[in-house]
């Protein structure tokens, strides 16, 4: 997933962002298609008040 051996100090190493997509989890959003990326960006949180 990450090019962990590229540089031991973390240069060019991104954060992993695990998100759910059609029921499945995906370990890095690099592999998401453009529409799903846009959908993820637009997701709003749901409050717990009635």
């Amino acid at each position: 997933m990450n090019i962990e051996s590229a540089n031991k100090n973390g240069k060019d190493v991104g954060f992993e962002r695990i998100r759910r997509i059609t029921g499945y989890l995906v370990g890095t959003m690099d592999k998401w298609n453009d529409a799903k990326k846009a959908e993820e960006r637009d997701r709003v949180k749901h409050s717990l008040t009635k």
């Binding site: 962990e4 540089n7 973390g10 240069k11 190493v13 991104g14 954060f15 992993e16 962002r17 695990i18």
Partner: peptide, 26 residues
Amino acid sequence: DRDPVCGYVGVIGEVCPRCGRRSGEA
């Protein structure tokens, strides 16, 4: 979210709350 460099698991915005680096920084 997880920062593979310092091992932090949780919510990471622009900056990792544990080690203070941004994505791609050494």
